[in-house]
Amino acid sequence: MSKKNEVPEVDIVIDHEAGVIREVKQPGLRSKSGHERRVNGGIYTVLVIMSIIWLAPFVFLVFQSFRSYITESGGMVAYLLPKQWSLDNYIWLLTDEKSHFLQWYGNTLIIALFCAVIQTLMVLSVSYTLSRLRFKGRKLIMNVVLVLGMFPGFLTMITLYFLLKQLGLTQQGAIPGLILIYCASSGMGYYISKGFFDTIPKSLDESARIDGATRAQVFMKIIMPLAKPIVIYTILMAFMAPWGDYVFASYVAFGSEPNYNVAVGLYRWVNVNDYQGFFTRFCAGGVLVAVPITALFLALQKYYVEGVTGGAVKG
């Protein structure tokens, strides 16, 4: 009797309309045998241990960010809890004139905002076109994108750098340069939202076209309102990506400290500069970056879940 309960039971369902995973209370009493209880106990133990492992680095990060730079040490130390809690690191980051942190933060935010808008437009245009419109060369475009996608991204890095340099978009111009690079080819990442569009019945388009809508009107009036989850997913992804990019950002902004993004700046603190001195500042910077991003992400989690699960199933 007890064994049957070990199946991954359907007591949670994906609510496609709301785009969330929802738990459904199953009515009826279930007798809990000892075996069942032992199994559940084991699972709880595993989950608690996992939670500790998963959360620990972030908790440590927060702890260390509050360690006083002045009275203790800015480097790595052999203990976890700060002897004296202080806001030294944060104050230094935000107010000291040698700190470019606010500038980096602003740079990254600007890049992220622009990307969120432009990339979303690009991705939606491409995915909608490839999903709904039939025209000569459609298959060709999809195959070309597939082949291009197999080339490693960094291969083209120096070419892009020199292209940007020709346009004056490196070092001092790194911010618009990075926006250009992030957005220019973003249409290639159309797969997930195309998968979403593919699930909207074609008869809706057809019906609208018979009703007198042009294809542009179908796009704006019918498909876009229905695509809200995938629009949010795309915006979220486009907004988050620039916060973590080190490689291109460091290459394009090379040597021009005011034009770094947070990833480049903080990475250089720990790896290029003497990290022993800047470790706690790195932690504090990391906290300042991670908190808003994580909050945003968790708030929009359901759209993310829908995007990745849909994407994985669709391929």
Binding site: M50, S51, W54, L55, P57, F58, F60, L61, M240, W243, G244, Y246, A263, L266, Y267, V270, N271, F282, C283, G286, V289, A290, I293, T294, L296, F297, L298, Q301, Y304
Partner: peptide
């Protein structure tokens, strides 16, 4: 678990 996806990798992985 999902927190690790949210936090930018350069923070979590470097740490």
């Amino acid at each position: 678990l999902v927190m690790t996806i949210a936090i930018p990798q350069f923070v979590s992985l470097l740490y």
